[in-house]
Design a protein around this nucleic acid. Structure first.
Lengths: 348, 348
DNA sequence: ATTAGCACTCTCGATCGGAGAGTGCTAAGA
DNA sequence: TCTTAGCACTCTCCGATCGAGAGTGCTAAT
């Protein structure tokens, strides 16, 4: 079933590449004549047709109907991406512009993540997805208790890795800001770098007030732990709204549904990228049998961040007919950029 | 131009209402016969046709072509919303379920805002928009300096109202967590409740380290001040993807573009709702001449929060053909719910 | 003021046919 | 054995045509 490099002659590879390229450009079936005319091949259209026949038998391309040109199949795209695609690095000027946007007045993740999504969307002309980085292991870093009104207190919790969580606590009596700060300092000394387990062990043998706060801390840590990924940033919806692949022709089965269904999205993330080391880019073509809604789409995903410590995911979702070389390069580039930024500002 | 209540006989109002209702249901032009058959009117179709003629002359309904039924015009919808719509309160069971979801294990805005978006989207079967609440006047509440690595420090800034901002600072030398905490405490005493102006006044006469931190604080306060609204939460995209109004038939002019263009969105927010007091719901029909992309859409927006202190915006964007009664009630309901929650947990 | 009756108009869907595109096959040439 | 010119064949696409049906506007009667 699975083809490898050696199954195809180099001429067949060239023809497959050209079909992919041309079909990406025009969204139309590609004719044998178009190929020799537009790309100046030194062979006749009949020869191309013969080769096309072979490729069709191999399941790499197909004809929408008897007398139409050829279109790459899912298999065909997979073969292309695995063996033939060549990454087309972003122009140096573009890279500089983008890098500059990220580094100007170092504003932190709040700024970088939407920017990453925006850059990806622009570069790929597809929908981009970026998740906030998430710690591999949840541990306490710092707590702050801020008196607000009456006995109500704002708890700000910083976890190792830099994730910040907040919660309003209703304490039993009113405490001054001084005593709240003292309490927070105590927690900061006692809990630094401690894991959920270790903190749970302390919970039992504490006075009621401490217990209440510990419970809140643990609550937030649990919530964070349960997340597969951090917050999700999207961009580039308008890039794909008008493409036929995303139009909701089939009743309400649009690939865009996926973006609103966190369970599905998490599933996608878990099954593909979470298993990979940082640095590898995964390309999913046509839903891979699992995601019906992605039948005509491709997803390019990768992980960024710091191996075994703090990582997020980013990638794009576009029509299967996509400029893979450019898209993969763009994903790589943005991932590396974010990884660098996070390494520079890691909170540990 | 503008019609008021008294321009129409009560029978005309009934007919207009029925046309709006029926067209909302079927998305088809409404015939005179349909009206008397499906709604049991005790008049003949010819009479209805005569009245329809009048309504057409008044510009409240129109015929797509000579021998088709009638469709409400923009004007017609406006008249309907201003004079005829009756809010249909959400069923008590639904209200309870929703309220319960908001109040369970009070998790704070992180939880409430996406939930609000989700509830609105479900109730209205349209796209929902919710912005995080934003302070009317920016003032310092609390700062925390957390040592991370080497001379790098995480600054967590809490503003009056509860907005939290963070930034990584690169200090000139390494400070212990104790000395950082001491510094933070000093700031907390000196700056409590101070505005941007007041803090700027202090900046000049401080030592370099203090200056650096004050600059960072001011930087974040300025950034916050410049925001028209807080973070934006969306939901319900899939509700409208398949409706003709949102399909990107006209090249790439879909109403959904709007959602990705913050400037446009801010403009929409500013011109309509920011001018209103909390409690009033605004209905925008057909882009009101300003927003081309919203030609076939309606937007229902309102403000929630605490007057003159902390407020955000929420609403829905749907096809002009929309169950206004239900939608307006839903927007009202969710806004009130959020206002209550925010009042309970206000940080001042 | 209302309504029955009727002629009129316009859309929608089905059907048809021709033009054009592109193929597969065959047979000849390198 | 590989390549290619030539040609018949197939299928889509597009426009034209047509009839059915829906819904109206008008007229005349109540």
């Amino acid at each position: 079933m699975k083809r490898n490099m050696t199954d195809l002659t180099s001429r067949q590879k060239i023809i497959l590449s050209l079909i992919v390229h041309e079909h990406t450009r025009t969204a139309q079936p590609v004719a044998s004549k178009t190929l020799i005319e537009d790309y100046g091949l030194q062979i006749s259209s009949a020869t191309v047709r013969n080769e096309m026949n072979t490729l069709t038998e191999l399941g790499l391309i197909r004809q929408p109907h008897t007398s139409a040109g050829r279109v790459p199949t899912e298999e065909g795209y997979r073969f292309f991406v695995s063996n033939l695609v060549q990454q087309t690095a972003l122009p140096i000027a573009t890279r500089n512009t983008i890098t500059h946007q990220f580094y100007q007045s170092r504003r932190g993740l709040d700024h970088w993540l939407p920017l990453a999504a925006s850059v990806l969307a622009n570069q790929s002309q597809a929908v981009s997805l970026v998740t906030a980085p998430h710690s591999e292991k949840i541990a306490f870093k710092h707590i702050e208790l801020i008196s607000t009104r009456g006995s109500q207190v704002l708890m700000v919790l910083v976890l190792v890795g830099g994730e910040i969580r907040q919660q309003i606590l209703a304490l039993d009596e009113v405490y001054s800001q001084e005593s709240l700060s003292r309490m927070a300092n105590q927690f900061n000394q006692d809990l630094e770098n401690k894991s959920v387990r270790q903190i749970e062990a302390l919970e039992a043998s504490a006075d009621p007030l401490t217990q209440q706060i510990l419970a809140a801390i643990l609550d937030q840590m649990h919530l964070t732990e349960e997340l597969v990924t951090g917050e999700l940033f999207l961009d580039g919806l308008s890039n794909v709204l008008s493409t036929p692949e995303f139009a909701a022709t089939n009743q309400d089965h649009s690939p865009l549904r996926l973006l609103e269904e966190r369970p599905m999205l998490n599933d996608l993330f878990s099954r593909t990228v979470l298993t990979e080391d940082i640095g590898g880019v995964q390309v999913l073509i046509g839903g891979e049998g699992t995601w019906q809604d992605l039948r005509d789409c491709a997803v390019i995903l990768t992980r960024y961040g710091i191996q075994d410590q703090l990582s997020g995911m980013l990638g794009i979702l576009g029509p299967m007919r996509m400029p893979y070389g450019h898209a993969i390069s763009a994903v790589h580039f943005v991932a590396d950029l974010l990884s660098d930024l996070i390494t520079d500002t890691l909170i540990d």
